[in-house]
Design a protein around this nucleic acid. Structure first.
Length: 376
RNA sequence: GUGCGAUUAGUUCAGUUGGUAGAGCACCAGAUUGUGGUUCUGGGUGUCGUGGGUUCGAGCCCCACAUCGCACC
């Protein structure tokens, strides 16, 4: 995998570039739709490509490891062939899910032991077997196994947590170099910068993670309970320390405004469940603000879903119709909302790229953020 | 026709010795950031079937009527 920086904004740290993978190119800044269990919920690949313009999607190691399991994925020839997606895939290591999903878990220097949320069976992720698992899944970009430190952790805990993440990273890297891709195309991995909201920890984490970064690097442990200003503050500390030629991936972020603010601070890649999960529950993001499609105010609004939207759903269905589908609990509601939201998120990063190349990103961003954070 | 039972929020129901009413779902809002097709938070929206009576006071006791259900002629 390679990254080429192509443009810089004049009034901010925003940049444009291209990531080259064996499954195609990715223009940055980019938003990556989340497809946890081997599907971006409710969307055909046809629409992901042609309507939404997704260039890369995510999979999740924790979920795929539990279901369908490594044997099936190996027999299928990897996740790309299994889910019939021929563009790039990035897999999260599953470390985050161990903390967010499982009730019973034990974290040690060796790794993390947890009980499946599906059947209660016990499993252990170590940096070593996590490399093997992500090799079996076959993502173009794998993520290092880390501990996602809560945003409200005290500095002592955050330092201890960071040390564990660093030790795991060293072991992950060693295993990565000892092993080969299984399916004939290249794989890389991104180390993850932790350090919670503490500047010194973040700096130390960045220096350490950079030693293990072949291509890109990730910023984790943000948007996990800390104030949003803290997140921006951490980006302002971390991003300038990273060499230009390395793409920066801000994990799990965020709202459209978070993404634009991240881009302004030098972030290149984003993923978030918000457009898909919140979409399935009636929340639509638009250039003019947020809509809760369940609200009674849309009951008789027969105007098109989003006049400024880029997706075909925006000009095919009405607000009143989508509200009806949500109230009736029709699965089609979630499909339409997901399609719209993902198309909007990809439009946000596309417009950002246009304005970075045009050199007026900073001022355009301020106005866009003001509009998209409103409410319709 | 007779007997018994029921009638309380949109709905299904609870409601103490008589002190002007609550719950689930629905509904109306808000939240959601490396996805458990969720989850969480807030909001009670009422002519207690109708009309009388007893009582300081009735969703509750008494009478009549209405409607529904069940049983028996």
């Amino acid at each position: 995998m390679k990254f080429k920086l192509t443009d810089r904004d004049r009034g901010s740290d925003a940049r444009c570039g291209v990531i080259f993978t064996d499954h195609g190119e990715i223009e940055t800044p980019i938003f990556m739709p989340v497809g946890t269990v081997g599907s971006v919920k409710g969307v055909y690949h046809r629409d992901l490509k042609d309507d939404i313009n997704a260039e890369i999607i995510l999979g999740n190691t924790y979920h795929l490891y539990l279901r369908p399991g490594l044997d099936t994925l190996r027999k299928a020839g990897g996740l790309h062939r299994f889910e019939a997606w021929d563009r790039p895939i990035l897999t999260d290591s599953g470390g985050f899910q161990v903390f967010s999903l499982t009730q019973i878990r034990k974290i040690t220097e060796e790794g993390c032991t947890f009980q499946s949320h599906i059947d209660g069976s016990r499993h252990t992720f170590t940096p070593e077997n996590n490399v093997d698992t992500q090799r079996t899944i076959g993502a173009d970009i794998m993520m290092a196994l880390d501990e996602c430190c809560p945003g409200d952790a005290d500095e002592k805990y955050a330092a201890k947590s960071l040390k564990l993440t660093q030790n795991w990273l060293e072991r992950f890297d060693k295993r990565f170099r000892e092993t080969e891709p299984l399916y004939g195309y290249d794989q890389t991995y991104f180390p993850i910068i932790q350090g919670c909201v503490y500047p010194e920890l973040r700096k130390r984490a960045t220096e350490h993670a950079l030693r293990y970064s072949d291509c890109g690097i990730a910023i984790g442990g943000l948007a996990v309970g800390e104030p949003v200003e803290k997140m921006y503050e951490m980006l302002e500390i971390v991003c300038p320390m990273i060499p230009d030629e390395k793409p920066r991936y801000l994990m799990g972020v965020g709202t459209p405004a978070n993404i634009l603010e991240g881009i302004a601070r030098g972030v290149d890649m984003f993923d978030c469940v918000m457009p898909t999960r919140n979409g399935r529950n009636g929340m639509l993001f638009t250039w003019n603000g947020i809509m809760n499609m369940r609200n009674a105010k849309w009951e008789d609004d027969f105007s098109e879903l989003d006049p400024e939207g880029t997706s075909f759903v925006d000009h095919t269905y009405t607000k009143a119709y989508l509200r009806h589908l949500f109230i009736a609990k029709e699965m089609f509601a979630g499909m339409i909302a997901t399609e719209h939201n993902l198309a909007f998120y990809l439009d946000v990063v596309r417009q950002a790229r246009i304005h970075i190349k045009g050199g007026d990103f900073a001022s355009w961003k301020d106005e866009a953020v003001r509009k998209i954070t409103g409410r319709l």
